[in-house]
Write a protein that binds this DNA or RNA. Structure first.
Lengths: 195, 195
DNA sequence: GATTTTTGCACCTAGGTGGAAATT
DNA sequence: TCAATTTCCACCTAGGTGCAAAAA
């Protein structure tokens, strides 16, 4: 009656698949840009009383550089070196299993993607992830049974990867079909819709 | 070279004093209303490496009920019973002394005042404080040398009180001079300014 | 020249104000 | 009748969009 076998479901999977079929792009800017669709998961199967820390990060999906040519993404050489990535710790961590499971979802919408090497601030909570433009990335989600942030480095991670979330970082959209999907579904881009 | 004698300065003291001279009022609503001026302090004198938790709460200033009569606040009987108050833990807690001192200030602007007894959600982070209308209150600030939220109940609190922050909770402003000060200084009320 | 990045912008969402009228 | 509270609103701040032009 106290399981500890997390089941993780990606929120808005149908939308993610629509983007995935066309080759998702995410804009990176100097001041930081959110992901769309946003990264949100529903977690079940946790021990009710045990404490957990939830995290995400974004890692290189391969060691290639890409370019968009003839309406297609093509490999264009070897990847540039990656800057060290920091884990984005969900700000409500640590919390008990029942607290995580009772919420409508665990959302990482505040994370921002940037190409700005200079860290904006020495914030306690790291909101920015530095990416290379024209490179392919894979977001990951981690569940750690751990009640104390200080002990996080010594705890076992359980990692969940959704291929549907792979994307290529860009400073300006390349594929107009991706642009249109963003406009159609992101409420902040409603001003560019036709209807 | 590792002091542990916190010095706390109230931000925007001149503005607080302007309100204090006229008898500050704070609006409470069903959905919750922020304080204005907002509660922000600058902390120094902490041990650089020790971890601290920062908190605030709001307690009854006396055991009276008030009414506004002939342009003055007057005692109008004995206070209604207070609902138990919860500490509002600053969301960046715990953090090291140098992290707290390096920031421009420790801000509690997200706290909301309400007269709604039904707690809106079972949030991990408590944002709402329930107050009685027409009663006088005193906000307080607490510094706790403590590295673990779970151990907070067993740690020694150092409490700082600014009399300039005393206010009477209202559902609608009584003193028009207070209303005008709010309009003059709160950027969200700019629409009501004359100029 | 061609590609990639930056900047400023109009247009949105989201939410914090006190006023005025309605309600309790 | 009077005092206190609730509801809805226009008017703000704050900040997330892709676009177009300029810059690198």
């Amino acid at each position: 009656n106290e399981p500890d076998d997390p089941q993780v479901d990606l929120d808005n999977m149908e939308l993610w698949e629509q983007f995935h079929r066309r080759g998702t792009e995410m804009v990176i800017t100097k001041t930081g840009r959110r992901m769309f669709p946003s990264f949100k998961v529903k977690v079940s199967g946790l021990s009710k009383s045990a404490k957990y820390i939830m995290l995400m990060d974004i890692v290189a999906a391969d060691d290639c550089r890409y370019k968009f040519h003839n309406s297609r993404w093509m490999v264009a050489g070897k990847a540039d070196p990656e800057l060290p990535k920091r884990m984005y710790i969900h700000p409500d961590s640590p919390a008990t299993g029942v607290q995580w499971m009772n919420r409508p979802g665990v959302s990482f919408h505040k994370l921002k993607l940037t190409n700005n090497i200079a860290d904006p601030h020495g914030h306690v909570i790291h909101t920015y992830t530095i990416l290379n433009s024209m490179h392919k990335y894979q977001p990951r989600f981690h569940v750690v049974r751990c009640g104390d942030l200080a002990k996080l480095p010594y705890c076992a991670f359980r990692t969940y990867v959704f291929k549907e979330m792979q994307f290529i970082a860009v400073t300006a959209y390349q594929n107009e079909k991706i642009t249109q999907l963003k406009i159609d579904h992101n409420p902040f881009a409603k001003g560019f819709r036709d209807s």
